[in-house]
C-alpha cells in the first residue's frame, strides 16, 4: 500500500505540491485527474525520487518504507515504477542492453541471481509480442527515433519486465491514437491483479474507458481536492476543470 501524507514540495522557490494526501490500497487502480500545471507530473517524479524537487514536509510510505529516504534505484528495486510522460531517448544504449541492465540491477539489489541470457531473451520476446513491439525496435538504441506511441509501448514493456509493486502511469494516453491506446491499456490490464497497485495520471477521461479505475482523485494547485469512484471521471469530462481552478485559486 502507498500512503502519501501532507506532501509539500517546491522547485526553485516555487511551491508545487501543497499538502497532498493520498492512499492507494493493495491491488487498487487509482486515477489522478487534473488541469495542466496542477502538479501531477511533479507528484510522479517525487514518488520516483527525482532530485530537482525539494520536499518541505510530509511523507511517502510504500508498505511502510519511507521512500523519501531512498535513492531512485532503491525505490525501483522496492517496486516503484514510473512510466514517463515523456520517455527519454538514450543514444548509443541498445534497448536490449538497457533492459538487461535494469532487470539485473534490480535483482541484484534484492539479493536475487542475475538472469541468464536465454531466460532474459525469452521474457523479453513474450512481453514484446503482447505489446506488438518488433525485433527491429528492440535492436535500436533506447527510444531513439521511436514514434510517440512506440515510446509509450516501450514504457509498458519495461513495466511488464520489471514486475513492479507500484506503477505510476503519467499521461500514458497522450500522443496515442486509439489503436495504440488499446494496446497500451491491454498491456496495463494484463498486469493488474494481486497486490500490484496503480496510479494512473491523465488529463482526459478517455484512457479510463480502457483502464477502468477503482478510485478517481481530482488534483488542483498541488493537492487532492476531491475523490470519488469511477463516475467522477465522467462528471469531469462533462463539466471540465473550471470549478476546481477557481476552488484552488
Amino acid at each position: 500500500m502507498l500512503e502519501i501524507r501532507n506532501l509539500h514540495v517546491q522547485i526553485e522557490d516555487k511551491k508545487i505540491l501543497n499538502g497532498l494526501t493520498l492512499t492507494v490500497n493493495d491491488g487498487e487502480v487509482a486515477a489522478i485527474m487534473g488541469p495542466n500545471g496542477s502538479g501531477k507530473s511533479t507528484l510522479s517524479y517525487v514518488i520516483a525520487g527525482k532530485e530537482d524537487y525539494e520536499v518541505l514536509d510530509g511523507e511517502i510510505l510504500l508498505d511502510g518504507q519511507n521512500l523519501l529516504e531512498m535513492e531512485p534505484d532503491q525505490r525501483a528495486a522496492a517496486g516503484v515504477f514510473l512510466a514517463f510522460q515523456y520517455p527519454l531517448e538514450i543514444p548509443g544504449v541498445a534497448t536490449m542492453t538497457f533492459l538487461k541492465a535494469a532487470m539485473n540491477a534490480q535483482r541484484k539489489q534484492r539479493g536475487e541471481d542475475e538472469l541468464a541470457t536465454p531466460d532474459f531473451m525469452k521474457r523479453v520476446r513474450a512481453a514484446a509480442d503482447k505489446l506488438q513491439i518488433g525485433q527491429d525496435m528492440l535492436k535500436r538504441a533506447l527510444n531513439v527515433g521511436f514514434s510517440g506511441g512506440e515510446k509509450k509501448r516501450m514504457e509498458i514493456l519495461q513495466m511488464a519486465l520489471l514486475e513492479p509493486r507500484f506503477c505510476i502511469l503519467d499521461e500514458t494516453d497522450s500522443g496515442l491514437d486509439i489503436d495504440a491506446l488499446k494496446i497500451a491499456a491491454d498491456g496495463v490490464n494484463a498486469l493488474r491483479g494481486g497486490e500490484r497497485s496503480f496510479l494512473v495520471i491523465t488529463h482526459y477521461q478517455r484512457l479510463l474507458n480502457y483502464i477502468v479505475p477503482d478510485s478517481v482523485h481530482v488534483m488542483a494547485a498541488g493537492k487532492v481536492v476531491r475523490s470519488g469512484g469511477k463516475e467522477l471521471a465522467l462528471e469531469l469530462e462533462a463539466n471540465g476543470y473550471a470549478d476546481y481552478r477557481s476552488q484552488a485559486a
Binding site: 534505484d73 535494469a102 520489471l162
Partner: peptide, 12 residues
C-alpha cells in the same frame, strides 16, 4: 537521462 536510468533500478 541519469534519472531515467536510475528510476529503472540502475545505481548511479
Amino acid at each position: 537521462l541519469l534519472f531515467y536510468l536510475r528510476a529503472r533500478g540502475l545505481p548511479l
